[in-house]
Design a protein around this nucleic acid. Sequence first.
DNA 1: GAAGTTTATAAGGCACACCTTATAAAACGG
DNA 2: CCGTTTTATAAGGTGTGCCTTATAAACTTC
Lengths: 219, 219
Amino acid sequence: MRQERVEEYLGAIYRLRVDGETPVPLSQLTGYFDFSPVSVHEMVLKLDAEGWVAYHPYRGVTLTEAGEEVALALLRRHRLWERFLTDILELPWDAAHEIAGGLEHVATEQVTERLAAFLGSPQACPHGGPIPPQARSREELCLRSVPVGAEARVSRIAPETPERLRLAADWLLTPGRDLRVVAQIDDATEVLVADENAGAARPIVVPSEHAQAIWLELM
Amino acid sequence: MRQERVEEYLGAIYRLRVDGETPVPLSQLTGYFDFSPVSVHEMVLKLDAEGWVAYHPYRGVTLTEAGEEVALALLRRHRLWERFLTDILELPWDAAHEIAGGLEHVATEQVTERLAAFLGSPQACPHGGPIPPQARSREELCLRSVPVGAEARVSRIAPETPERLRLAADWLLTPGRDLRVVAQIDDATEVLVADENAGAARPIVVPSEHAQAIWLELM
DNA sequence: GAAGTTTATAAGGCACACCTTATAAAACGG
DNA sequence: CCGTTTTATAAGGTGTGCCTTATAAACTTC
């Protein structure tokens, strides 16, 4: 298997999982990559055979220790490049995510560590994801489960997809932003986002698909 | 054809050619990539069919205008990344060259231009190669053809291979260094390289294979 | 111009990571 | 518990870019 492909799969599994225990269903991977279920299944069998993941039929995959190590290293590279691209080259959020997706496979250990040092060893990527090695510490809640009326601060977007990052930027739902949940309706969440420029708060309706991927800390 | 492969070939042809006229023999490409002659021939036919190169049987390939444009853009990205890796991340010369070989395929136009701006629009890569768009202006001479006794300053290493870059670094034959040619022997050139640290000049014997790839300006 | 060296081309193969179609088995929901 | 939905697996296929072996054609050199 090509190293790059292995890394992509392990990274995807890491990003999609809720914890280290619960297996990630193959259907999720299918959606993440937009590959056919058969292709994903095939690849997962190979990854299992080589010890990167544990495959639990009809339930999904979990990362082995080796697999998690690779995923964390990849994520670290990804997020450091994102910081470089947004902080130093001043690229927009979502573009940075895409470019970092390519750069993450190239950098060696040495390059990564020097990059980290140059950036001042940042602790989080521009979407608020922690840069490994470092565990998630704060109490997070996804937008979908914030009680109506509560005020909260956006902490991160995860899982991150290019489209979601673009939308989040449009909605001003970026890490650090404050908001109040106005209503939890049928299959969407309505929020008011503080907007210094506009002077007033902006009302936004976030489909639950995305509301489940926007994480906040209560204030 | 995969874009990356196309770029690699076009870049190689650009680096290997002596001028825009003389075709680069396929045997040179075979050596550059360490691929079989048949594979290179096959690929060259495809590149010709798609208008990236002009293939002259029994003579070699030249870049078309489209091909040259791609090659120049690639080289620009490559050399800018090299500068970033050596200047900002302080990587050694040869490591930078290798890593840049991966990064050059990832960066978009936007990233490249912001990187250039961040680096202060440098005019040359760490091995002295000009960063396109910008023509070679100085009067250059390869080490092999410098007359005995002449003093000269290293301006660039080209074509660059990882091994050659490593050797050049060992020999202190890096852009900016001053030297005097002591002898042009059988199939090597003997030089004295100024070395501030050692206090005295270091005598070096450079095989003609490499002496043909180290470029200088007479002083 | 014959000998030797390069270069071209034909023919067949391989690994990788995707694909589709189709069937079978397990899991889940009323 | 039965039907629906999800998941697994078999079988066969595709394109890319490499490979080897072998033959043929063109250049080069003496």
